[in-house]
Design a protein around this nucleic acid. Structure first.
Lengths: 123, 123
DNA sequence: ATACTATATGCAACCCATTGCATATAATGA
DNA sequence: TCATTATATGCAATGGGTTGCATATAGTAT
C-alpha cells in the first residue's frame, strides 16, 4: 500500500523509530542525568566506539541531543524536553546506578571517588 | 554486538517498536475515540483487509488492544491506558475528523448521517 | 612534524520486520 | 446445504535499518 503516511503522524513516527532501539534508548536514558562524553557512554554500553558514535549521530541529526567539544572530548546532552518527559513516563525517574561509571575524561577524573572502571594501571 | 538489551528497557522498547509503524499508530489513534470494527479501520486506512488484520493481531498479542465479536463484525478497542496517555502527549487530543468515515457495520448504519463512503448500491 | 588519544565517517553484509497475496475460518441467511 | 460477508492466518519475497570494521578527522603534547 505504501500510501498511508499521513503527515500528521510523521513527527511521532520518527521519534518512536529513534526510541525503538536498545543502544539509542539507553543513551538517551543516560543523558537524562546530564552531559556525558562519548567515552563515558562507551563504557556504559560496553560497545565499540564507532558504534556509539553512529547512534549519537542519528540522535544528533534528529535534534534529540546536542554536543559540545572540550579538547579531545565531546560532551553530549539531551536537547529535547519532550523526550525527557516521555522517558520519565515510561522509565520512571532517573535511576542512580550503584557504582557510577568512570572513564578517562577530565570530568570523570575530578569527581572520581573510586578507581575508574575502564582505566588500567600499566605498572 | 547484540548484548546490551537490559531488561529494564525491554517493555519500553517493545512499545516503541509497535508505535513506530504508520498503520499501527494510525489504528491506535483511531481507537482513542472508542470501539471500531475492522471494516471501519479498513476504510479509514484504505489498506487491504488482511493487512489491517495483521497489524491488529500484532497490537492485540501485545496487549495494547482487545476485541469483541458481534455477529460477523469484530470491534476493537484500546486496552492500554499508558498508550492513550502517550498518544495524547504526542498527537494532542482526539482529532475529530471532518467527515466521519462510514463502513457497512450496523453501528455505522444506525448513526449514519450521510451515505456510507464505501458502500456501493448495486440495485 | 610526529605520536597519540578521542571521536567521526563510509560502507558493505546481514538480518528481520514489513507487506502482498492466497487461503482459511467464523457467522449469518436462504 | 450452499452462498455470502467479515475477519483471520500462513508464508514467501522484499526492503531498509542495523552493525561491524576499516579508516578518516580533530585536538593535544612532545
Amino acid at each position: 500500500m505504501s500510501v498511508m503516511s499521513e503527515e500528521r503522524y510523521e513527527p511521532a513516527l520518527r521519534l518512536f523509530s529513534l526510541l525503538a532501539h536498545p543502544a539509542r534508548l539507553r543513551i538517551l536514558d543516560l543523558l537524562r542525568r546530564g552531559e556525558a562524553c562519548v567515552c563515558h557512554l562507551q563504557a556504559a554500553l560496553r560497545a565499540p566506539q564507532p558504534y556509539i558514535s553512529q547512534q549519537l549521530r542519528v540522535l544528533r541529526e534528529a535534534g534529540l541531543i546536542a554536543c559540545r567539544r572540550e579538547g579531545l572530548f565531546v560532551y553530549y546532552r539531551l536537547e529535547n524536553q519532550q523526550v525527557a518527559h516521555l522517558l520519565a513516563d515510561l522509565l520512571g525517574p532517573v535511576a542512580e546506578e550503584p557504582s557510577s561509571l568512570q572513564c578517562t575524561c577530565p570530568r570523570c577524573r575530578e569527581t572520581a571517588s573510586f578507581e575508574p572502571i575502564f582505566l588500567v594501571e600499566v605498572n
